Amino acid sequence: MPSLEQSCGCGGSRELSAPRLRGDTPERAGLDPEEIRQLVREVRDLTTGSRPWAAGAVLIVGRGPYLAVEEAVGWAVRYASYDEEKDAGVELPPERQVPMTASTPFDLASLTKLFTSVAAVQQIERGTLGIDARVGAYLPDFHAAARHDVTVRQLLTHTSGLRPELPLYDCRDDAERLDRLRAEPPVGVPGTYCYSDLNLLLLQHVLERITGRTLDVLIHDGITRPLGMTSTHFGPCPGAAATEDQRRPWAKADRGMLRGVVHDENAWALGGVAGHAGLFATGRDLAVFCRALLSGGGYGPARILGPDFVELLLSAPGLGFAVDQPWFMGELAGRGAAGHTGFTGTSLVLDPVTDTFVVLLANAVHPRRRAPDSRPRASAGTRVARAVRG
């Protein structure tokens, strides 16, 4: 039986410590070993052939306190550049290629949104942020959002009506970028879903305004440090898996082959710390994040949210999290599974009903981006759903 330990950040009350992850077999975790072996084979196949889905990948599957799968395949760095004429990557000499390992950090891309959302719900729990409050109450200088009565809930559920993005990377300086955000009005019907990076950028400004702290500090102090996620932080991250030979016309900036600096052009223009992108993390750290949420907000003696607020975060339609989306969750969708994807090839899904999670991290834009393809993510979710026993 777990020992009684002091809860961190929940009013000083004593409660049972949440179990930590420990490596074990799929059988011990209540997962069918043959389905898991097939899943590992399929992920390995994603990194082989002349035109792989990704140069490399890390797969992690857990159920309850058991970390049943932790597999690294392929390459963290395989290509020096992209040859536009041949439509193929230019491979590095073998001695300069870097194998993928379980401890390789990845550019999380839009998985960053999940951490920004947790940071927001922490402020809701503390009473410093109202979920249905108007953004203008906190950011009166963001005139367009204030004039259109955009709310915090709308930012968290992508129902503000804001367009998907702005070309902030083309602005001359930070002052112009800020002016554009302040002046950007909704273009859609408020209350109608439209996925937008701008929602999380505005939420970042709200959080920084009400706390007096920058987003990187809020996420470190409120999430990653208490959970012991020592490999999760905003860049630079020199040992990360490489992403893209970023050049126009397929990209929005000419930056060359990227490794250890944020891939997203707007996050890069904003200095690498942004509400929608910029975090780097390992698969193991994300497993801890998933385990904490599945445990009602606690991990070991640490607690980042109370159970009621975790439920608020994960319940449909989800605050920051997407809920029951078969296009990337496969057969895990349909009973309250929550998760997200990232443009670089990252994803995570957690299923509260079966106490199961799957993390699939890949450098799918190495050596260059292509049309998004989430079928491998959905297939992984289906394998895990079919593996669950009882």
Rank of each mutant, 00 (worst) to 15 (best):
D173S: 08
V365G: 00
D245I: 05
R368V: 15
R375D: 11
G12Y: 10
A18F: 00
D221G: 13
T356C: 11
Q246L: 15
P326Q: 04
H158Y: 03
G320H: 02
A322T: 10
D107E: 05
Q97S: 02
P65G: 05
L4I: 06
A380I: 08
L218A: 03
R28I: 13
P65E: 07
R303N: 09
T224S: 09
R255Q: 04
R147P: 11
G12H: 13
I124T: 08
D174H: 12
R78E: 06
G283M: 06
A385Q: 01
V261L: 10
T230Q: 14
H220D: 15
R368G: 08
L332N: 05
F309H: 15
E70N: 05
S379Y: 13
T48S: 11
L111W: 02
S50W: 11
D355M: 06
D87S: 13
S379M: 15
D174L: 14
R134D: 12
G191V: 09
S315M: 07
P317V: 04
G334H: 00
D149T: 14
R134T: 10
I223G: 07
T214C: 14
Q154D: 02
G336Q: 01
S50C: 13
G275F: 10
G188I: 04
S315L: 07
P99W: 01
S17R: 09
A362L: 10
R213D: 14
L92T: 06
R78D: 05
D24V: 11
N363E: 10
V261N: 07
D141F: 12
A269W: 01
P190T: 04
Q6E: 14
P99H: 01
S231P: 03
P226Y: 01
A362F: 10
T354D: 09
V118K: 07
D174R: 14
R96M: 09
A380V: 10
R209I: 11
A146V: 02
G9P: 05
M329C: 09
G278P: 00
L108D: 14
Y193E: 00
D373L: 10
E85T: 14
G74I: 11
A18Q: 02
F289A: 04
E27C: 10
E34A: 13
D107H: 05
H263Q: 11
L16S: 13
A253I: 13
G336P: 07
P236A: 09
A175D: 10
S117W: 02
Q123N: 03
R255S: 04
M1L: 15
R51D: 15
H233W: 08
A269Y: 01
M1I: 15
G12C: 14
L4V: 08
M100V: 00
